[in-house]
């Protein structure tokens, strides 16, 4: 019964959006983690989504979402001249992570909206199944 597959598909999306929310919160939490060099500096992390199944035609599985991996951003780190900072290097510079807080906020809202949409799908599917079970009663 393909209504059961709706739960699998929406569940995989919930999982993917949770990963996305997780990376966003990690990025936001570390937005101000100052370092004295770029080597051990935090880098913004973003998940990469891909369809779980390429072909739609397989009857057993619907193409849900899978998280292919989490990549670290290659954007340059922010450099700031602050010689009084305890983490400052010899030249008086500190390095800030390449986290764009505005981008992360937008990402967070998008993720939570997508999560809501999928919960709504699950609720509808549940209602459809419950009504099917109640046939003839």
């Amino acid at each position: 019964m393909s209504l059961f597959n709706v739960f699998d598909v929406a569940g995989s999306a919930l999982n993917a959006q949770t990963v996305r929310l997780n990376t966003t919160s990690s990025n936001m939490a570390n937005a101000n983690s100052v370092s004295s060099s770029t080597n051990n500096l935090y880098r913004a992390r973003h998940p990469v989504f891909a369809p779980l199944v390429k072909a739609f035609d397989s009857a057993s599985k619907g193409p849900g979402v899978s998280v292919q991996g989490i990549i670290e951003s290659d954007a340059p780190a922010r450099q700031e001249y602050n010689p009084n900072h305890p983490q400052a290097n010899e030249q008086g510079y500190i390095f800030m992570p390449n986290v764009n807080v505005i981008e992360e906020m937008a990402n967070m809202i998008s993720a939570s909206r997508s999560y809501q949409a999928n919960v709504e799908v699950m609720n509808s599917a549940k209602q459809m199944m419950m009504r099917t079970l109640a046939i003839g009663q």
Binding site: A13, Q17, A50, V65, A111, V121, S124, M128
Partner: peptide, 17 residues
């Protein structure tokens, strides 16, 4: 019910490039 599955997959992949 088959179409519900397709549309759920579309919504699930709303952020998949």
């Amino acid at each position: 019910s088959r179409r519900a599955q397709l549309l759920a997959a579309n919504i699930a992949n709303a952020d998949t490039p």
